[in-house]
Simulated scan of single mutants.
Amino acid sequence: MEEKLNKILTKIEEADSVLIGASNGLSISEGIHIFAENADFLENFGDFRKKYGFRSIIQGCFYPFPTEEEKWAFFSRMYNYFLYNEEASPVMKNLYELVKDKNFFVVTSNIDDHFRQAGFPRDRLFEIEGNCRNLQCTIGCHDQIYPGDEILSEMAEKQENGKVPADRIPTCPECGGPMQVHLEVDRNFLKGEAWQKSLQAYQDFIGSAHGKKIVLLELGVGARNQLIKAPLMNLTHQEEHATYITFNRGSELYIPEAIATKSIGVDGNLAEVLQQLAQEK
């Protein structure tokens, strides 16, 4: 393992650019598992589990709550759960330490906004499915995405019996209609100007890396993931000087034969590996 980690550090150091692709496995390494009915879920969302029957945070995100008061109770509590600690986790601090001096970009399906919390600049980040702290008009009457920290934290604090007071529920400042968290949980997800700008920055980064040494640093992305993993593997195949570095556990660690000679796979505890890499950098 020591030899493999040294090789990873060398590849990152020699790279002209580093593209980070991250999904649920990275969040799990921080202690957040949105797909699990674990002790943490029951402690923080047990009343929702009892009342509505859903068994994980991700199921709650897609649940058709009967009222706005109940919907916002869940989403404000989820916001509070993800971002209650204002300081970034050791996992995210180590990741930032590993790449902060490089020309990097991040593409992620994680919705907890922990990259920005750790210091990753907004203009180097494409959150494909949105994040838990921004709001949008549900009917999409206009393109604006709104910061929701103040509203969400207040709703999390004021809720009682699984509901928030009706007078705390946000309405669209343009049309007066309902709002929702800017997450891709339904067809209302707004892929407006801000989202398109991030997508373009992602594409521009890839374009600028063409023909140069690029490291594709993949963190906790499932073996069958088509949103992040497939594009990163395709890019590795297309770029002569690319190195594909993937971190995962067991059967989720997948490297196709076509890019095996340009790849490094690490099967292990992601939090521990990132800490070791950051320390040895």
Rank of each mutant, 00 (worst) to 15 (best):
A201T: 05
G207S: 08
Q180C: 12
M1G: 09
W195K: 00
C172A: 04
F120A: 05
L274T: 08
E13G: 02
E193D: 04
S198L: 03
L270V: 06
I214F: 10
A36P: 04
D149C: 10
R124K: 15
I255H: 01
F75Q: 13
P66N: 03
G222S: 09
K51I: 06
A271L: 05
A39H: 08
I111K: 05
G21R: 02
N134K: 14
L135E: 11
F104D: 02
P64F: 00
E157D: 15
E257L: 15
I228R: 05
E127D: 05
S153I: 12
I58K: 04
H114G: 11
M92K: 01
A209M: 08
F105K: 01
C61K: 04
R168I: 00
M1T: 09
Y244V: 01
D123T: 04
R133E: 14
A209R: 07
N225G: 03
F45Q: 01
P170V: 05
M92H: 10
N85Q: 15
A156R: 08
F74M: 06
A242D: 01
P64E: 00
H237Y: 15
H237A: 15
K213I: 03
S153L: 14
Q180G: 11
P90D: 03
N234W: 13
A223N: 02
R55I: 08
G265V: 10
E150W: 12
R55C: 11
V181T: 11
E30W: 01
I28R: 15
P231V: 01
E97C: 01
E68R: 09
H182P: 01
R77K: 15
L152S: 09
L216S: 02
Y52P: 07
G162H: 07
Y244D: 02
L19H: 01
D47R: 09
P173E: 02
Y254Q: 08
L19S: 00
L26P: 03
E2P: 01
I34V: 14
I34F: 13
L232Y: 11
